[in-house]
Design a protein around this nucleic acid. Structure first.
Lengths: 181, 181
DNA sequence: TAAAATGTTCATTTTTTATTGAACGCATTG
DNA sequence: CAATGCGTTCAATAAAAAATGAACATTTTA
């Protein structure tokens, strides 16, 4: 297992990758910014391609269409399409109509608040909702009595703790977005 | 690409896995709680084994040693050792001395505030620190002038935006821990 | 002090996840 | 209405991450 100190271990900046990007016509600034996003994305569990696309759009002075993304980042049409789809789904990018061009163009949403809110709403909240059902089920599985009564007591306490966490998450998550206003 | 709708797609509960756990002598409640943690862990990018260990300890009335963890969860000694190491590193578990037993025993830290703080401190803050250096580098890469001056202007704005995000993260992250008090 | 117990490490294997690219649908255009 | 452009989908492949297990170091016990 190459996980060195933790499952979320740091990664060194890969010079090989940097070069391969450079050869495809990206500026040094673009390479650096994209790499920054790729690193951050890893932390949050996003695929590299998604981070690359967002990084490219973040810096681009004009909205870009899919085929420019594929050629500049040297990724496949499939990856780009999927990445854009995801970024749209969390409202991290917006489609922009460009007159006289049939292709869809996209710009990055650069407001932290919007980015975080979009992610919370689309990725986190759904999970929290399903949590409600699962907690009910947990409660139903609590043993009414055990050989040592302190054990069933302890188990009940733990389920209560989970319910407590769930409530906190429900309360705090929407608040986080506002904190970044 | 089996990523269906998003890179953080939901996963169905795998009945096969549930059975394999059940056969190893875990109660239905334990299976359910562990599965809950495994699901949540995926969201945060933790390995399954880490979530399983934490879940088991979370419910356990008494601290458990490594070999009981391996036998109850049916995971290898290596996985358990690494998982415990990580959980210790983020202060999600604590070693407990058990008289008359040479083995290290561990209990789960069940305070949300502590869990979140530990994770922020050990996993997030280090990244934020390296960010400072990288941002300085970005600034140095900004072109002094471009063919169209509005472009260099735009790029400067973007780097400022990143600095802005960085500052917000530095301010808000420590605050999140306190929000959960 | 030899044997057993405990826990870590890390090369190898397995599993999971992401990327690719060809096939397809649909709209536009010549 | 054939040909071309644009974008999506998905089976196959590649890449990345995690789990395994054997070797090892250390401590304890007999």
């Amino acid at each position: 297992m190459p996980t060195i100190t933790s499952p979320l271990s740091d990664r060194a900046i890969d010079p090989v990758e940097a070069v391969s990007l450079e050869e495809s016509g990206l500026s040094e600034l673009e390479i650096e910014v994209i790499d920054l996003f790729v690193g951050a994305a890893r932390l949050f569990g996003f695929p590299k391609s998604v981070a690359q696309i967002y990084g490219l759009l973040f810096l681009a002075p004009e909205p870009l269409p899919l085929d420019e993304i594929t050629s500049r980042l040297q990724i496949s049409k499939g990856s780009a399409s999927q990445g854009l789809k995801f970024l749209r789904s969390v409202s991290a990018i917006k489609p922009v109509f460009v007159p006289g061009d049939r292709r869809d163009h996209f710009r990055a949403v650069a407001e932290l608040k919007q980015l975080v809110s979009g992610f919370i709403k689309e990725e986190l909240e759904p999970h929290i909702e399903t949590g409600t059902v699962r907690l009910e089920r947990l409660r139903s599985l609590l043993p009414q009595e055990t050989a040592d009564p302190s054990i069933s007591e302890h188990l009940a306490t733990r389920v209560e703790r989970l319910e407590n966490w769930h409530g906190k998450a429900k309360k705090v998550l929407p608040l986080v977005g506002k904190l970044l206003g």
